[in-house]
Design a protein around this nucleic acid. Structure first.
Lengths: 378, 378
DNA sequence: ATCAAAGCCGAAACCGGTTTCGGCAACCAA
DNA sequence: TTGGTTGCCGAAACCGGTTTCGGCTTTGAT
């Protein structure tokens, strides 16, 4: 019998049940209970069942911190907020965190977050959190085309999953939205509406998603049988001001586009005030399709047609993937790619003007109201 | 000598230093090292110094999870994201988290976050996190006037600090911004500019801050020697649409106000499109001062004058207060109240119209451009 | 010189788990 | 029968710390 292990069996009512409470209640030892709960093969099936039932009855849940000192695992996923990142990314933060937290707590895990100001600090924090057993693995958002973080994490054998693909995808667990496919079908959609000259305003060129979306745009042009005109491509547009400036510059050239594809809603919103100044109606004289699905896009007039991303779901999937990766040594190559959902809200319509007519209007610096009586006849 | 405790002294190079590494290096026992580092009084000053120096040299940092199994503390502060909250609060999330995380990591603590959909779930999660030793105390944002969370947390002896005051402030640790003072001086500022009729558009009435801001507004009127007209007060305005509707309703009545004080920037932004429709220029025909300091307020024309809140700092102070509260049993009554900083950006100016003139204009449903030639002479 | 009170540190128990090791009993084949 | 597996569980070490307890020195007062 296990009399030696019976000493601490006074179960104070308010206290949480420990493994000893379970073992004492059953006349077994801690070790048997532990192995039963962790599905060791050397425990009889009937015993395992008894143990699990009793654990359930007593409301026993192993103390993660106690486990961790032996196992090195705390059942926590780590996430670093980089404040240096562009403001445009911040509004998503709450939902993203919520998503991660949901999948974590569904598995009995938790989420440890920290803040950092620079990419270097991020890496320092990550290894510190890992050393201190505050997190078992990390979720890395906004992958870069050439992401130093990833090589370093891999070198240090720190488990992680990324939101977004990278150029070194071997043996990496990632989740991503197929932004390239969204851009491609945006182009095709605009072409179907009758647009022949379609501009592309991209996001920050260091991000992998920008590369992919540009490729998607190019592919869309190719699929539509349209020429690729590099003067219609603008990069590095993250903010509303960027997006506005890009459009202004593109429209000032010869042969202006009648439609825009933006890689980011935030930048696309910059087109609205510009259009108003130029006395152009979005959805008629200028069409635009964008990407992200920010709430502000629904508030402008006409509402911005966009490919919406479910950021909470992304966080949730990433959390689930990380946990799976951490539990299962074999899960070294998990990938999930999902499609954005198109919200056709009215900012993309048949072109009311040809490129030439548009050009004439812009050059003429036409007085207010030039088109206010309706569409131009072609 | 402590030969019995020497068994695990093989310091693998890559491994983190343990307390045994330190004790072995010094020829002391674990217990002495532990007490020295934790400033027990029964350790000689010279020994304490030696121990601390060696710990420093070896880069020893106690493993929080190992400590926690004895002490019950993990050096983590908990924070719950409530998604049910109004969208208006979300953009702040990243900065708020960053602030909390900063003060936490400054003290060697970390931040554990979880998501919840309802207030009830929030409380469940809190006690779960506490039971599982995932967090030692919690930061509770957006206090309500009568906040059930607080009574329950207090009943369960779960340590916490609040962002915002409540009606049961005895023995509570809180941090807050003096929104009432901001509202008061907003009224006085507008009165100094020449406004006599000043409306107030408040936020959600369940929140404590709304009560305070309303009181501040009233106090401002009193200090300015103005009458209190309850028809100029509107409650429950959280969104841009709410803010717009409130202003529309208030302006439709007799004796319309020439100035507005908004409790929330987000709602105040609703005044802009309304003013445009009514052909009124903000900063001239209508003045407005608001509160929060959201980035969008700087982008509108004219930029929104507002009392800005440093939300990152709030998070930082709250984290620091919570840690102090947790470390020191005596720290049961900490309070910090700070002032918002006024950003005078142009949406508040001398009234170009009297209330009567404004009323006449509004009733006349005047054609566009009625005031476009400049200010009215009075 | 003597004795009690500090001062200081080692020994060991403890926290709540996990994991290794070994032994007993039952089973199975020879 | 006998001997070797196999199945199943207890005993004990262990993880990295904290905390209680007690004992040996010093110190200080008498």
């Amino acid at each position: 019998m296990a009399a030696a292990q019976r000493q601490n069996g006074r179960s104070r009512p308010g206290r949480r049940a420990t493994i000893s409470d379970v073992s004492n209640a059953l006349g077994l030892t801690k070790s048997t209970v532990s192995r039963a709960l962790n599905d060791y093969p050397d425990i009889a099936e009937t015993t395992r069942a008894r143990v699990k039932r009793m654990a359930q009855k007593l409301g026993y849940r192993p103390l993660a911190t106690a486990q961790s000192i032996r196992t090195g695992r705390v059942r926590a996923i780590g996430f670093i907020i980089e404040l240096a990142e562009h403001d445009a990314h911040r509004p998503f933060m709450a939902e993203f965190l919520a998503g991660m937290s949901r999948s974590a707590s569904a598995e009995g895990w938790t989420l440890t977050v920290a803040a950092s100001s620079t990419p270097e600090e991020t890496l320092e924090i990550i290894s510190k959190l890992q050393m201190e057993s505050k997190a078992d693995g990390f979720i890395i958002p906004r992958t870069l085309i050439d992401d130093e973080r990833i090589t370093r994490l891999r070198n240090d054998y720190i488990p992680f999953v990324t939101f977004g693909r990278t150029n070194s995808d071997e043996e990496t667990v990632w989740y991503d939205i197929a932004g390239e496919e969204a851009m491609r079908s945006a182009v095709l959609h605009l072409h179907d509406l009758g647009h022949d000259r379609i501009a592309f305003v991209n996001g920050g060129s260091k991000y992998k998603y920008s590369e992919l979306r540009r490729e998607g745009y190019i592919q869309g042009l190719t699929d539509a049988g349209l020429d690729i005109d590099h003067s219609l491509i603008f990069e590095e547009c993250l903010s509303e001001e960027d997006g506005r400036a890009a459009a202004q510059s593109i429209l000032a050239a010869d042969n202006p586009p009648t439609a825009f594809v933006y890689a980011l809603d935030r930048a696309a919103l910059g087109l609205y005030p510009l259009a108003k100044e130029l006395d152009l109606t979005i959805g008629e004289h200028l069409s635009v399709i964008s990407y992200d699905g920010v709430p502000e896009g629904a508030a402008v007039e006409p509402p911005l047609s966009t490919y919406a991303v479910d950021i909470a779901r992304a966080g949730e999937r990433l959390g689930a993937l990380l946990i799976r990766h951490l539990r299962d040594d074999e899960a070294k190559d998990l990938h999930e790619l999902e499609q954005a959902t198109f919200l056709d809200r009215g900012s993309a319509g048949a072109p009311a003007l040809t490129s030439a007519q548009l050009s004439a209007h812009l050059r003429g610096l036409g007085p207010k109201g030039a088109f206010s009586n309706g569409r131009n006849s072609t």
